[in-house]
Design a protein around this nucleic acid. Structure first.
Length: 207
DNA sequence: TAGGCCATCTGGTCCT
DNA sequence: AGGACCAGATGGCCTA
């Protein structure tokens, strides 16, 4: 291996981006080695997300990308997939054409990997928003973690109930108590109905 | 073991 | 052009 560059970007939210560049030695199993490197870093610092070296992207121009060997050796990058025509006795010219083809397609792969990283970050931000929302919907103390869809549905029902309380102008606790006694007051199509909510709200300490 | 939930990858579309 | 957003596909994990 020679002239390999690796750039790590440790974000405050615990996620990590990284970029790599340079000439790969034929015997350099980049995917495996970078994976183990990241695992070591994670074990050492606890900072890295468990993302694999799929996040590898070049910071140099396309012409400097020489990931051909990496593609062949790294299952994760899938350049030599089944039925792709790879064979040990492949004619030299065919192999050269294949190599050229791989190099031509590298910019797409690099962009695709960068897009994957952005997508993972986007999903992480969505998930953190879900976590925040979970903290604001009433749940039983013993209730297991709400799924995303249940969190959304419960939040919708919760907002509807809060609106009802506001519209009624009555004391929130007595309104909830009344809901508990009288049963289903708001029979909407919502999965989470008033009884679900009021039962949960009964756990809340009203000041 | 089937079903639910989730993370991830991917390609398409929209937006800046 | 590049990034954000979205939805479909896929595979892993967990639970009843």
């Amino acid at each position: 291996m020679e002239d390999i560059g690796l750039l790590l970007d440790f974000d405050p939210d615990g996620s990590t981006d990284f970029a790599c560049w340079g000439q790969m030695d034929q015997n350099f199993h980049f995917q495996t080695q970078l994976d183990s490197f990241l695992m070591d870093c994670q074990a050492a610092s606890g900072q890295l997300s468990p993302w694999s070296s799929f996040g590898c992207q070049s910071v140099f121009s396309d012409t400097q990308l020489t990931f051909t060997d990496l593609d062949v050796q790294s299952p994760g990058l899938g350049a030599c997939a089944e039925g792709d025509g790879c064979s040990a006795d492949e004619p030299l010219e065919a192999a050269k054409r294949r190599t050229r083809s791989l190099v031509v397609h590298q910019p797409y792969k690099v962009q695709r990997h960068a897009a994957n990283i952005r997508e993972r970050k986007r999903m992480l931000s969505i998930n953190s928003a879900f976590e925040e929302l979970r903290c604001h919907v009433p749940t039983f103390p013993y209730e297991k973690r709400l799924s995303k869809i249940d969190t959304l549905r419960l939040a919708i029902a919760y907002i509807a109930l809060l609106r009802e309380i506001l519209m009624s102008g009555s004391d929130p606790k007595s309104y909830v108590d009344e809901c508990m006694k009288s049963g289903y007051k708001n029979q909407s199509n919502a999965i989470w109905n008033t009884r679900d909510l009021t039962a949960r709200l009964s756990w809340i300490k009203w000041d």
